[in-house]
Simulated scan of single mutants.
Amino acid sequence: MTLRLDAIALRHRNGAQALHHVDLNIAPGERVAIIGPSGAGKSSLLNLFATAFAPSAGQLDVLGQRPWQLSSRQRQRLRARIGLIHQAPPLPPRQRVVTAVLAGQLGQWGLGKSLLNLLHPVDIAGAQAVLARLDLADKLFDHCQQLSGGQLQRVGIARVLYQAPELLLADEPVSAMDPRLAEHTLSLLCEHAVQHGVTLVASLHTVDLALAFFPRIIGLRDGRVLFDLPTAEVDPRQLDALYANEHLTPTAASQSHPTPGLPRC
Rank of each mutant, 00 (worst) to 15 (best):
L181A: 10
P93V: 09
R81W: 00
L209H: 15
H196D: 00
G104L: 10
L134H: 13
F141E: 14
A193T: 07
E166H: 13
F49H: 03
P28D: 04
V201Y: 01
G58E: 00
G112Y: 10
P93G: 09
S148M: 13
W68L: 08
H120L: 00
V155Y: 03
E183D: 14
E172C: 05
L115A: 12
A52C: 04
S71Y: 05
L24D: 08
L167C: 06
A80H: 04
A232L: 08
V174M: 03
L119M: 10
V62H: 03
H184K: 12
S203C: 13
M1L: 13
A176T: 01
D178F: 07
A27P: 01
A18N: 09
P230L: 08
P28E: 03
R13Y: 12
L134C: 12
G156P: 08
P260E: 05
I35R: 06
V130Q: 05
N47Y: 12
S72D: 09
G36S: 06
Q105N: 12
F214K: 08
M177I: 09
S175L: 04
G83M: 06
L239Q: 02
L131P: 07
V160E: 11
V207I: 09
A50H: 04
A212N: 04
W68M: 07
A127D: 05
F214I: 06
V160D: 01
I218G: 01
P215E: 15
H205R: 13
H143W: 03
E172Y: 02
H86I: 00
I35Y: 03
A193C: 07
A7P: 01
Q17V: 14
R94K: 15
H205F: 05
D171Y: 03
A57L: 02
G156Y: 11
A252G: 14
L78E: 00
E172S: 04
V194A: 09
R224M: 11
G219F: 00
P260W: 09
Q65H: 13
A54G: 04
L189N: 04
A7M: 10
L248D: 10
T51W: 01
L169W: 04
S44E: 02
G149L: 11
Q69K: 15
D123V: 00
D61Y: 05
K42C: 04
F49P: 04
P55N: 09
H20N: 09
R216E: 00
E172M: 03
G126I: 03
L3N: 10
M177K: 02
